[in-house]
Amino acid sequence: MGKQDKDAVMSKLHDAIMNFNEDEARSGAEEAVKSGADVLKAVEVMGDAMSELGKGFEKMEVFLPEIVMASGALKEAMKVLQPEILKLVASGTAGKKRPIVIIGTVKGDVHTVGKDMVATMMMTQGFDVVDLGHDVSPSAFLDKARELSATIIAASALMSTTLPVQKDLIDFLNAKNVRQNFKVMVGGGVATKEWAERIGADGYGQDAIEGVEIAKKLTA
């Protein structure tokens, strides 16, 4: 396969993300592997497409369900590309791994809109986001973060009565002696910077945009 064909594969992957098309993303990835294209470049191209969608999301030209679908397409492609990337990791030629974020609304709280906005924006900014949904216990955050070797645990709480669960999460991490393995971010309607500092969280975001900025700083 020549350069032109490899460019066409990259273009196909880019378009698959922009059009939220899982099938095209998977077949594009398969073509990339088959043709011997640079798989790291393929990941980068898809990441750029996610960033483009993210800019559209902030301007309300692209919408949350579409980002979720685009993220689904990215994940399909990654299933194909991941084994090749692991080979590069083994040979020491792979680039930096996308940081994994475990996100959820804490136990007892069913409010998900703010958390969904943060998760969506993170997906477009180079993070692998695992969304545990709502009513997530500290143990569930901890187990998933350990299982996936996550970089960040992001816990949302909208209500004053569920805010203490963010502190529980940090207490649990300390109790298991794994606090230093993860960066913990908190947010939600009643959370504040002062609260985050008081409970020993690593970061606080007033809204989704600030949350992503903080996550980038924490993983820089």
């Binding site: 136990k107 007892g108 209500m159 004053s160 009565t161 569920t162 805010l163 203490p164």
Partner: peptide
């Protein structure tokens, strides 16, 4: 308005403190 503490104990959902609050 949310009553978020009962006698200094944080009120969490599903706890008896939530009923008391």
């Amino acid at each position: 308005g949310v009553v978020f503490e009962i006698n200094g104990t944080a009120v969490k959902p599903f706890s008896p403190f939530e009923l008391a609050s």
